[in-house]
Every structure is written in structure tokens, then in C-alpha cells.
Amino acid sequence: MNFDYFREVFVEYLQIEKNASPYTIKYYLDDLNTFFLFLEKEGISDLKEVDYACIRVFLTELYDKKLSRRSVSRKLSSLRTFYRFLEREQIVEQNPFLNVTLPKMDKPIPEFLYEEEIEKLFTVNDVNTPLGQRNQALLELLYGTGMRVSECAILKIENIDFSIGTVLVLGKGKKERYIPFGKYAEDALVQYIDDGRKQLADKGSSPTNSLFLNARGTSLTARGIRTILNDMVKKAALTIHVHPHKLRHTFATHLLNAGADLRSVQELLGHEHLTSTQIYTHVTKDHLRDIYLKTHPRA
């Protein structure tokens, strides 16, 4: 069998039917290439020859390379999807990966900022300057909505609806969702759009409707957002590492700690499955335990 051919048609399937992002496709290809190299080394030239015993040998090699359980699990999941595609196209009769158990993974508690830490970040920006206004609006929006940095970087001015206090976000798989934002984010956005953004836009060589601009007047990138947050942390003299996703974790954790229900937080985060949101309950259990120990007569 021509492995290159199957690699190409699988990528087409991911792009056209699954609407997968380039980032997702890259990981699928990495996993597929690892498997194809293993098959060539084992002298297996037909994808129909892959069986349970062959997969166990493949897994042994992955563990011998000191791969984490998360990495092994991802590779198995990728190959299961690949063989499901082959089965649908009637290239193979059955999916040999269906009977392979995914390794149990540790579920680390998401890192988040305490309220005192997040409050310090809100005091470091000079809102009398264009960049300070932008940074304040950026921080307020990320923490106030829990959106992903990739979603934030592609926001347009027209995505903000001040009349009802919502932002239209384009998430994974090009799925749209509306997220409400509060008064603090509204004030910061209004000041930035009416003042700082106009000054930044004047520095650009061509008009743009991107919401967040860099010092040259062009669209701010996801990498630029990460750099801005790191600078804020240094100014606040915090001995922590803050990445945009930590603000997302903080958003979800603070909502659940304050009594928000899991389904609502799932919708706000844009999670397809509730299990993705449930990782935050590990954090809130500590909060509930503290309340119980402080308030229950027999605690």
C-alpha cells in the first residue's frame, strides 16, 4: 500500500469534512508518520495487516521512548480516527484500534489566579496611553469572557455589541458563540476604541477592522498577546507565570466558586463536551470543603 496516498486523502477528509484546524492536522500527521515509520520498520506494507498484537508492539515502543501517557493516548486516538476513516472508505474491514484501551491519564488541576493576584494586574496599565488602554481592554476582555487567545486575536470591532453587552466569538471548528461581558470590560473597551485604537490605527499603512492593534497599527497576534501579559506580570511584580489560558482557567474557576452551574460555564467556554468543563470542579471542591469546615457545626 502507498502510505503517502492514504496520508493525503486522510488530510483532505480532515480539512473538508471535519473542518479541522491546521494545528490539529499537524498533530494528526505527526502521529500518522510515527505509525507509518513503525510499520516500515516491522516490514508491514499493508494497513489491513495491522492487528491487536501489532498495536501492542507499537505501544511498547512508544513507552520505551519515555512518551507520556497523554502523548500515547493522543496517538492512539489519532490512529483510531484514521482507521475509522479507512473503514468507512472500505479500505479495511475493521478498526483494530477499537479494542485498544487508552491509557488512563492524570488530570492536573488547572492553574488559576487568586482574586488578589488578578486585581494587581488591573493596576499596572497606564490608561492615559494608547497601548495602556489597549492592554487594559485586552486584560478585561480575556478575564471577563474566558475566551481563548486565538479567539481574541481574530476579533473585529463589529464583533462587540455594546447595546446588549456581548461579544461574538469564532471558536474551534468555526463555531460561533456569544459571550456576555460586564461593566469593567465595557468601560475599558469604550475608552480603547474611542481613543487609543484610533491613535494606533493612524500608524498603520492600511485600514483594518481588527479590534486589537499593535504599536505599528496592524493586527495584534496571539504571540503578541502573550508578550503583553508577561509584561503586565513583571510590572505587577508577581512571581507567577501568566499565559492567556490561565486567565481562561481563572474565569471558569471564579464563576464556579461563586455558584455558577457547570452547563452555563460550558456554554461560555465553548466546550463541546461537559467533561472538558468538569476539570474545574476539582478546584471548586477545595473551595466547598473550606466553606464546610468553617460553617458546619459538626465539621
Rank of each mutant, 00 (worst) to 15 (best):
E17S: 08
T145C: 03
V233E: 12
C54N: 12
I109P: 05
R70C: 00
G132P: 00
P180K: 10
D290I: 09
L32V: 05
T208R: 08
V124L: 02
Y178R: 14
R80C: 09
L200E: 01
T277S: 06
Y27Q: 09
I16Y: 06
N159K: 08
I154Y: 03
L79F: 09
K120C: 03
N159M: 07
R216T: 12
K156P: 01
E119I: 08
Y63S: 13
V11N: 04
V100Y: 09
S205T: 15
P297Q: 12
V167H: 07
H241S: 15
C152Y: 02
E61S: 14
V167E: 10
I193D: 03
A299K: 14
D194P: 02
E93N: 11
A299S: 15
L29T: 09
I164P: 01
I179D: 01
S163P: 07
R80M: 07
Q133D: 00
R56L: 14
S78P: 11
R7N: 10
S77Y: 06
Y63F: 14
N209Y: 10
S71A: 15
L67N: 15
N19E: 12
F181L: 08
D286V: 06
K104T: 11
E93W: 05
R69F: 10
H254N: 08
M232E: 03
I25Q: 01
I16A: 09
S219C: 07
Y184F: 13
Q94H: 15
P207I: 04
A137V: 01
K26M: 08
H287Y: 12
A137N: 02
K183W: 04
R7V: 05
E89L: 03
E87G: 08
K203D: 01
N135M: 00
N214M: 11
I109A: 11
R70S: 05
A258K: 14
L220I: 11
H243F: 10
G270N: 09
A20M: 07
E115L: 12
H287D: 07
R84M: 09
K246I: 14
A201Y: 02
L229S: 13
H287S: 13
Q199T: 09
K48T: 14
L211W: 05
E42T: 03
L67T: 04
V9I: 15
I91V: 15
L121H: 05
P103A: 03
F85I: 08
T218F: 00
L39P: 13
N159Q: 10
T253F: 01
R289N: 07
F38M: 08
L170N: 13
K198H: 00
Q199F: 06
V100S: 11
D51A: 13
G196T: 04
D106R: 10
K120T: 01
T208H: 06
L288R: 13
E42H: 04
Y280D: 07
D202T: 06
V169N: 02
G171H: 05
Y178H: 11
V124W: 00
E42K: 15
Q199H: 08
T221W: 06
Y143S: 02
N230P: 00
L141N: 04
E8Q: 14
G165Y: 09
Y52H: 11
T295N: 14
F10I: 06
F122W: 00
K26C: 05
L138Q: 01
L62M: 14
K26W: 03
L138S: 01
G132Q: 00
I160H: 08
P207T: 06
M232I: 00
